[in-house]
Design a protein around this nucleic acid. Structure first.
Lengths: 323, 323
DNA sequence: TCCATTATGCTCATTATGAGTATAATCATG
DNA sequence: CATGATTATACTCATAATGAGCATAATGGA
């Protein structure tokens, strides 16, 4: 066959572009997600302070290949589904060069091995406690973050900036009766960073004072990358059948629902959820029933692989003509 | 203030990650789009064979800053709205190193200066003639590409591969009565590449034979990057108010519609289109009327900037509970 | 004045959504 | 063994969003 080189285009030397640029170090960083029971977990290293990552090297056949290697080497986990997240660049911190980090999102189904609580997996709400709204609005939001952000807004020099800050905080965090938007994970983290409410902001600015928002910090910008990954996942599960990458081969609709809820950080309407899944024909019955603990047994379903071919994309938001 | 460094995270040297990686050359490439009348245009350089691009250098404050510089320098155009597209890496072509290219999508409103037909702007359908379905299915699809792809499928060794190829071609190009999906720009290009129907595939493989699909080729992987940009735009205009970046300050709904149609490569239902725009309150009347050539004068509208704050994101596809 | 042309208003059937209500199976247990 | 607690599934119903048209309103030019 002659497949296009995977993420690897040909770029023949051209006078304008090759060689005359400065070389930089390139890092590959992975946000690997799995859901256990009702916790959305992320694969970590170094005492849960970092995401698996490592430099992109010559020997790697491609970006993804390099990423896979590092993740496997550092965590022993094999990557399944992956997609590129974002490429970040930073100021000159590394002597004689710059660093760029290319981040990826990976999804896997972590089979729950009883007893062996792998410490490398951490609930992502350990890092973003304000993101879990499944049991209602977390008390730390009105109790801590809202007043802190309010204070930050007050600090502003002029009225305009102050109002702007207030509005931004209200919109991203859903204050003043505004609706909570679970997709704004990154914007919220960035706002807290600006307001110096996360440890990373202190560290980067060499400022003083304690971190005021709860939630574990991470090395470098890993927490930001994690936020980017969560945001992507929360956005994309709504129009692409991504959840199934996190599910075992057969599952009940409740399991599927719990997984979605774990990711979205909020509850969904049970009956309407199954209606949605069924009307979109995303799954098919396996014929088996689940042997579970309590309640009426549930049918087991499997993902209809055919969906991937049929509808590579979801739907339109434009009133297209047919013909 | 203390804004997060724009795309520039802090990455303190850590034993595992800094310095021990191989350095690589990083290129920045831009897909800059504007719509003139009813043509979606892309900014090109080097006789329309390349996208504006250049190496990422130390002096650049950030990726975007570097990109801006190159685009301005090579084309004289100032970038407005930009967003990152994708990061590609390639095999070792450049002596002693590898190259990575970080691509961006830029949107601008090119005011039509009568007479001065800037040759740097090219309709993107010059590169992807099979993507324009505004006047119905282009004849080159059933007339040329379908038989070619069919032939390519036949070439397959085993039946399985052959059926797979057929199905893939049918789905991405809408053969066998399947619906046309305008978002699959990249998949279509990649399929043509695999089937050796675009010039780039020949060049990269050092194979022989003429390019069989019409449409201009580009340097390196620029055409693929362009396809990525078009695909992103076609997908995203459906759920984000991106079109307005391409519009002048005031416009009629027909102009807006023509712009969308140019981008999507297909026609939309006029009445329903305005209903959609109005019900979503994306625009507001300026009070003026357009002084145009024919027909009843139309109201002029402007984009409601407030939308950007109100609804950072579109809507849900999950049956979320309120509370 | 009549027509081609574009703008706008409205209707109507069909689907999709948001919120519940009503049953149906299981299991643990008194 | 009947009773709850618990979870699965079926339906209902009002409202909103969509897909397709039909109808009417303004303009400029022939």
């Amino acid at each position: 066959m002659n497949p296009m080189p995977e993420n690897a285009a040909d770029r023949p030397p051209s006078p304008r572009r090759s060689g005359d640029g400065d070389n930089v170090a390139v890092d590959l960083t992975a946000v690997v997600v799995a859901v256990t029971g009702n916790q959305p977990c992320v694969l970590t290293v170094e005492e849960a302070t970092a995401l698996p990552s490592g430099p992109f090297e010559h020997r790697h056949r491609s970006l993804q290949a390099g990423l896979r290697r590092w993740v496997e080497q550092q965590t022993g986990h094999r990557l399944g589904y992956t997609e590129q997240l974002y490429t970040f660049a930073d100021r000159d911190r590394i002597a004689g060069g710059r660093a760029i980090s290319i981040s990826y999102l990976g999804l896997t189904c972590k089979e729950e091995r009883e007893g062996s609580r792998d410490p490398a997996w951490r609930s992502w709400y350990d890092y973003f406690p304000w993101e879990d709204h499944r049991a209602g609005t977390p008390s730390l939001l009105p109790g801590l973050l809202e007043p802190r952000l309010q204070a930050w807004a007050e600090e502003a020099e002029d009225t305009e900036t102050r109002d702007e800050r207030r509005l931004r905080a209200a919109i991203t965090f859903g204050f003043d009766g505004r609706p909570w938007n679970e997709e704004l994970v990154l914007q919220r983290y960035e706002l807290l960073y600006e307001a110096m409410l996360v440890e990373e902001a202190m560290r980067d600015r060499a400022g003083g004072g304690p971190a005021l928002a709860p939630g574990r910090a991470m090395i470098a910008d890993h927490r930001r990358i994690l936020a980017t990954g969560i945001a992507r996942l929360r956005t994309k599960i709504k129009y692409r059948p991504m959840v199934f990458e996190l599910m075992p081969p057969a599952f009940t609709l409740l399991q599927l629902q719990l997984t979605v809820e774990a990711l979205a950080g909020r509850l969904v309407h049970k009956q309407n959820f199954r209606r949605l899944i069924e009307q979109q024909e995303l799954v098919e019955e396996t014929g088996e029933m689940s042997t579970q603990t309590r309640g009426r047994p549930a049918k087991l379903f499997r993902f209809r692989q055919a969906v991937l071919m049929e509808r590579t994309v979801a739907g339109t938001r434009l009133p297209l003509m047919r013909s």
